[in-house]
Nucleic acid binder design. Sequence first.
DNA 1: CAAATAGTGTCTCTAAGACAATATCAC
DNA 2: GTGATATTGTCTTAGAGACACTATTTG
Lengths: 271, 271
Amino acid sequence: MDEKSFLSEYSIENYERPSVTTDIAVFALRYEENENYRLNSSKKLSILLIKRGEYPFKGMWALPGGFLRKGETVEECAVREIFEETSVKPLSLISAGVFSKPDRDPRGWIISNAFASVIGKAEKNPEAGDDAADAQWFDVTFERTDESMYRLKLVYEDTELLSVLSERKTSFGKIFFEADEKSMLAFDHAEIIASSLAELRQRAKNFDVIFDFLPEKFTLTELQSVQEAITNISVTPANFRRKISGYVSETDEYTQGDGHRPARLYKRNNL
Amino acid sequence: MDEKSFLSEYSIENYERPSVTTDIAVFALRYEENENYRLNSSKKLSILLIKRGEYPFKGMWALPGGFLRKGETVEECAVREIFEETSVKPLSLISAGVFSKPDRDPRGWIISNAFASVIGKAEKNPEAGDDAADAQWFDVTFERTDESMYRLKLVYEDTELLSVLSERKTSFGKIFFEADEKSMLAFDHAEIIASSLAELRQRAKNFDVIFDFLPEKFTLTELQSVQEAITNISVTPANFRRKISGYVSETDEYTQGDGHRPARLYKRNNL
DNA sequence: CAAATAGTGTCTCTAAGACAATATCAC
DNA sequence: GTGATATTGTCTTAGAGACACTATTTG
């Protein structure tokens, strides 16, 4: 028997298999305009959530995502699901781990590949997809409250979703987050969001994902405020500019009409 | 209809599902004794491969691994598979990505969660498991040959497995490796090994995984030689000792009888 | 001029890297 | 003493962080 005849007789149907999904934490910035037009608009990190229209967790907010289809990779699946939900192709896609606890989904054996992604500016109201009752951008707050305790707060108008998470380590030293019983999100999505945020912050610190939140040309002050919105860490402009200098190039263009000194526009360097 | 009755009627069987496996790059060090007993033994990084006893890729060398079982996480699956193959519980488990190209396995739709793991010293000959014809430790060479080209060489006695890989970036900037057609390993395992090695090296540079290759108490020179065996980068002892100092604590014990000055033994600090 | 942001210069401190020097054992 | 490794000290340089200062616009 050779390999060809082996494969022609081989049936993969004999083994029990899990369903495989992707869940995606889609991030964007919301620009908060000020009453005083001379102030720069401040930026808030926001995340896209959908309100579940069906059981399980009907009526609760959850991450967009869906089942892996035959013929696509998990990354392609994530991009497809984001596009179906937002009509936007994401600018980055960052792996946030595989979530495979057997009891994580009441429907059965379902493992999820989690991603963080960035689609730039949160402009329009997102449309709710087929099995979703609603879809909205939520402002994100994620902060350490105590030694290894975190508070995740997601706010949209008068809806406030709060989760308390503890930072844990596997016996192998890998860091993950474990949500408190009364998380206000469907499934284990609070934990996935926390992991995605941790990943996103790590990258933002290393100047790796901040460009995806801005158009091709941007000012350094904008870029710095993006980094601050994501990481919650502020540095003095002089130091930021020194560190970023290797990643960007000057253009000859400037901003105009902001009620203060114009700022030079920069472009990201090719990698 | 409430959630309970929805779930009791829900059948997950309606959707087509992939098979899910883990493949694990198990690393250990091989100690090369010298003819001159006064020389310290040098260390080589080695990886465990099994020779496939069944189609597909019968007779070719491959990573250990196996199908995810119901009731376990992918991490537990990886640990179980390593234990079945080596009778050793791994000391670390590092995610090396999800491999989900639809055509990566000729048996059908099979996606793999890849891990790098460390089991310390490669002492005994491993036993071949059920569907394996052989199992051996291969010495690892992985080096850049050219701008974004890498050569992976795995050697066991007179068996030499060579793969040429190019370093690629997804449109989202994620780095991965693509093997040349004539890789001498089963499936896409050359690519998985390259990713695992890149991950392992990154961690070794940050003093994150090197302790797992040594017993509880070790000399700083041993620790440095572990780092060098993995990363292929050497630094001067004085600088290594300064950088490692925050991660380790002195003991009162020393090595003896090595034909040169005794070395103080250290322990890893608790994290 | 005032308000606001844009952008530069400089000081200190730490960490990294290179290199030299000293210490201690077995034989 | 010789050969081998262990361990410490010091010099230089690069970078991070803090802080003060100057520049340019609109009203």
